[in-house]
Design a protein around this nucleic acid. Structure first.
Lengths: 228, 228
DNA sequence: GAGGACTGACTGAATGTTCAGTCTAAAAAA
DNA sequence: TTTTTTAGACTGAACATTCAGTCAGTCCTC
């Protein structure tokens, strides 16, 4: 196949814009209707184009949706890393890490839609391509955690624990909380999940932490947009 | 709607058997193909009947699948409770609880298919009926945990911690581990997840625990049947 | 022979994908 | 400068397929 080159219309301006539009719209629709009920007609309609154009850019529906997942996961990671790099102490970085997972975000592009993650997981379970994306993304995050913990230990902020094991434990815990939040569990709302996790972490790593307004700031900042 | 009564052909023998067969087959198919790709024809074929008969028993596909989820969740709970009631100490019950969540089960009826849970969660996120099932099932389990912890404390096996909070924490942790296992995460296999959790729990509740052969017994007992 | 269990053949609707062709703007030719 | 060509972005209308659900009627059992 030599189609590779022209398969993706890659004019610098319009083509890229369109692709971005479509990926973004796809994520919106997945959030609203769920992955399984997402139709290319929905995505096209949202942008105001014909369904045929969607196929023109992404050969198949599956390709579009898979790429949308990859795109979301990548920008989430990039944004997370960016934020973390701006924070001075390991303790603050840890708090941001947890907040990104559990608290509604003020950045509308990140659109902390927890149900999205459930859909991604289901896709990862069957689609090897998505599975790869998720696996590497997960591993990257755990690496971030590991070095975060080590930095904190070297700086004397955290006590000595096995960083690797801790990262596995914590990322599982956060995923579990994500499930509860996504399913709107009556006893596990974002704020209390956040505080529960932070309390555990601060005790386990031995640094002082007390609930600040952060949770409420985040929660209300995104409150309007979240939950629907 | 007064259809309620005749909607379900409820002849004592055959009809019930058929329903059970169908629910069971539905779960098999969901495990294999995923909820979204499960078709009535698959379920019918597995039993060797015509698709029309499936509709004859369950008015709609949705009703069948929803009921299959409920059925699975209920029998899982019932079986769990049964097992727990047989164990003499709170520590052993706790271990069984964790094992049921994370280790492959020797009972083929429970068919610990973790991906199934992911699919259930996605359904619960959109389908209010399923959401209700999941919510109450989750609450029941947390109640089991709470009384388990309290019993252990009263018996002097566990130290004093907030049982309610602990139950929330642990059930989230287990859900998170389930995600990793379901997605076949390279660093979180069932056995190590089990041990990691048990180590945390025993330390936190202050009772002695050391890895026994249990994990391997369970793992190999179900090894043949699982993951095909 | 009555009633429930069951089926084969069918339908209707939804929807991913194709395709022939239009429109626009820029490059090439005049 | 004006005309012609080209190429990519885009669309409307069809196509093809997949499936849930219907229906008329058969078979079996009591």
């Amino acid at each position: 196949m030599t189609q590779q080159a022209e398969r993706t219309p890659a004019g610098p301006g319009i083509a890229d814009t369109r692709r971005g539009q479509m990926l973004h719209a796809a994520l919106d629709v997945i959030s609203e209707r769920g992955f399984a009920d997402t139709r290319i007609a929905d995505i096209a309609e949202r942008i105001g184009i014909s369904p045929a154009l969607v196929i023109y850019y992404f050969k198949t529906k599956d390709q579009l949706l898979t790429e949308a997942i990859r795109h979301y996961e990548d920008s989430w990671y990039a944004e997370g890393k960016r934020r973390m790099d701006e924070l001075p102490t390991a303790a603050l970085r840890m708090e941001e890490f947890v907040a990104m997972n559990l608290l509604p975000d003020s950045d509308p592009d990140l659109e902390s839609n927890w149900q999205l993650w459930l859909d991604f997981w289901v896709q990862a379970a069957r689609n090897p391509d998505v599975a790869g994306v998720r696996r590497s993304s997960d591993e990257r995050w755990r690496e971030v955690l590991v070095s975060l913990v080590r930095e904190g230990q070297e700086a004397g902020e955290f006590i000595s624990v096995d960083a690797r094991e801790f990262s596995i434990f914590l990322s599982a815990l956060l995923d579990g909380m994500t499930v509860q939040i996504a399913l709107d569990d009556p006893v596990v709302d974002p704020v209390s999940a956040f505080e529960l996790c932070m309390r555990y972490i601060s005790e386990h790593l031995g640094f002082p932490w007390a609930p600040t307004g952060r949770a409420f700031v985040n929660a209300s900042a995104a409150g309007a947009g979240a939950g629907r």
